[in-house]
Nucleic acid binder design. Structure first.
Lengths: 221, 221
DNA sequence: CGGCCATTTGAGTCTGGTCAACACAGGTGG
DNA sequence: CCACCTGTGTTGACCAGACTCAAATGGCCG
């Protein structure tokens, strides 16, 4: 398994969400193999998922196949909860991924019967919105190296600043997240390595060590 | 005044929001001159605004001045309502703009004391999220002509498909919304005109007629 | 009329995309 | 154990779409 097993709770920022997804809300578990679809854009949003281990990508496609990955979901993250009745993205397992599943209906019922349930739902949607807002600035106005630096810092933060960071996703996935091509991502990573901002660890190119978070943050403009 | 005066209510899609912003919630009016700031990114979010006439742009800046416009707000639109305590964008008047103002506190109180108040707030945030999600696809994966076509169709829809569309914003504003330069926007518009997708109306370059919405929609990929 | 601003258009440049070759790890099967 | 294949990533050469810089146009307003 490529990414480190982590406990489900995350630091500082999950507050009310824990209440929402805690306890016995999730009734069953399921494991998706690498590359398999969890749900498709436009499908009815019947279930809600929380990642136990692995990673999920959610994305939209243009008719000719161009892909924009909206976000990567890591252990502890909730995904697939829509306000409307249908999914606005396709979701796929980046690597083998174990999720906990509950029905949307069941979760929404619980939310209604809960003090501050609506508020925690609002917090969840707001967090997604903030991520999207920041990502628009990245997509519209940052250069390739700035984009990759920002991506590394985001993953670093979400993995709690590990010594060695494991990326579950391929260069193509990163590219489709950042609005670049895989070659450009690869070149940007090489540039950052040559500038001593990071180094690769071990055989695979998916484990890396951030050597200069300060410098990366400055690149992030 | 450049954009047509429209009634405050919008067609199909405002449902519960009307309840939220109707009646006497807004206590005072104010008019901002072209280019003036309504609030700044990071400032405390004390007030909420609804546009009576005019247009507002909300944007983020990188430290070196690169700008990404998040959205344009037109008559009837609510803006400045944050879930957190501070504004995540700067808001400026694109042209002379009249707004109705209420305090955030006052509005949130009303929402709490209202059947389905929380739900309407959630609907509002969700709508912003959906717009952001679609805009990420545009910013990350569409070409310049596709971006401009999508922009024109969005404005056309939001102005209820007028015969002559009036754009309150400059080419630079459009560019910063689409992640392009103003020259590229101008060239794309010229291309669309040469392809008989649109024509300019009158002297100014800000009134235009969409001649082929079908064709534009196809370009929008 | 003259100055200013917005816009268009042209010429040249450059960032990032495209196409191709190569390296290398990991898995398969003889 | 090794030959082979496949998937992934890196790198180079070249290309193209968008950017930069510049000039010209035309509306608007003092």
């Amino acid at each position: 398994m490529l990414i480190r097993t982590r406990t489900v709770s995350r630091p500082a920022d999950d507050g009310q969400l824990e209440a929402l997804v805690g306890e016995r809300v999730f009734c069953s578990e399921f494991t998706y193999r690498r590359g398999t679809e969890v749900f498709g854009e436009g499908e009815e949003a019947e279930y809600v998922y929380q990642i136990v281990s692995g990673a999920i990508r959610t994305y939209k496609l243009l008719c000719d196949g161009r892909r924009q990955i909206n976000s990567f979901h890591l252990p502890g993250d909730l995904f697939g909860l829509e306000n409307g009745a249908v999914h606005r993205f396709t979701a796929e397992a980046v690597i083998q991924t174990k999720v906990r599943i509950t029905s949307r209906r069941h979760l929404l019922d619980r939310i209604e019967h809960q003090e501050a349930g609506q508020a925690s739902l609002l917090t969840l949607v707001t967090r997604n919105l903030q991520h999207a807002e920041n990502h628009m600035l990245l997509l519209g106005r940052k250069t390739s190296v700035e984009k990759v630096a920002a991506f590394l810092l985001e993953m670093d933060r979400r993995q709690d600043h590990p010594d060695v960071m494991s990326l579950p996703m391929s260069r193509r996935d990163i590219a489709d997240y950042l609005g670049l091509t895989l070659e450009t991502v690869s070149r940007a990573l090489s540039t950052l390595r040559d500038d001593n901002m990071l180094r690769f660890d071990g055989q695979t190119q998916r484990q890396l060590v951030l050597l200069d978070r300060e410098g990366l943050a400055q690149l992030d403009a």
